[in-house]
């Protein structure tokens, strides 16, 4: 089996990161960065899962035969695509309390990111569902599939495969977008880097490590996406 270049790249990236850690007194700022990384992951992982859920629900809602459901989905998608993530975060954390709705910084971050990414994801899901050949829908009709099974057993499994590359893209965007949560007082990887820079002035080392960590995280997402695609293509592809 031919190895993807990524299998080689990820360990190399880690080794380079390790080099910095060992050889340029990175030890003084690395623990803080790792704390930041923990926050980033704690925000990113649930946000990704919630964003996927929202994507499917709003994406299907966009195609629903019931008018109000369709309109609600369309409004949600347009609002959260149209407003920048930073502004959404400000609204959730600083504006909503003015109306009596208070939430923790972590909740605001999680909600803001997943609502923003979910709006993009919904359009990906909608496109993918529409890309499933018409014949599949007709086969469901003639075989009398109940609507629920038609979507869960036939249409969505095929649509999600179509959606994987675009969803991978969205997930990487989401991951990098988590850097904005410092706006609502969370100290994530980027915020930790900025703070350590102010304290230690190890600018080159800090931001190189930061870049490497983000790169590696993105590669993990990309690699998972490729594996999921391979898994499905074995059944769906021509070969």
């Amino acid at each position: 089996m031919q190895r993807s270049p990524i299998v080689v790249l990820v360990p190399i990236a880690f080794l380079v990161g390790l080099y910095f850690a060992v050889f340029s007194s990175v030890a003084e700022f690395l623990p803080a960065l790792l704390n930041g990384l923990t926050v980033t992951i704690k925000v990113a992982v649930p946000s990704v899962l919630l964003a996927y859920l929202i994507s499917v629900v709003a994406g299907l809602g966009r195609l629903a035969p019931i008018g109000p459901v369709r309109w609600a989905s369309a409004i949600y998608i347009e609002v959260f695509r149209g407003v920048s993530l930073l502004v959404i975060l400000f609204w959730l954390y600083f504006v909503l309390p003015e109306f009596g709705l208070t939430m923790s910084a972590y909740t605001a971050a999680l909600l803001g990111i997943s609502l923003n990414a979910g709006a993009y994801g919904a359009e990906i899901v909608r496109g993918a569902v529409q890309a499933v050949p018409k014949g599949q829908y007709e086969a469901c009709t003639t075989l009398n599939y109940p609507v629920w099974h038609k979507y869960t057993r036939i249409i969505l499994p095929q649509a999600l495969v179509i959606a994987v590359p675009a969803m991978t893209n969205m997930t990487i965007e989401l991951l990098k977008g988590t850097a904005l949560v410092s706006a609502v007082t969370l100290v994530d990887l980027t915020a930790a880097g900025v703070r350590q820079n102010q304290m230690t002035y190890r600018t080159v080392e800090i931001f190189s490590v930061l870049a490497l960590i983000y790169f590696c995280l993105a590669q993990v997402v990309r690699f998972s996406g490729v594996r999921i695609e391979q898994f499905f293509n074995r059944h769906l592809g021509a070969d």
Binding site: P133, G135, Q136, E138, A139, T142, L143, N144, Y145, P146, H149, R153, I154, P157, Q158, V161, F232, H235, L236
Partner: peptide, 25 residues
Amino acid sequence: MVFQSFNLFPHLTVLQNCAEPPVLA
């Protein structure tokens, strides 16, 4: 109905294609 373009479900095996519809429908 039998279609010109078959319209089998590509993500299901031959047996699943034939055994699943009666169960669900």
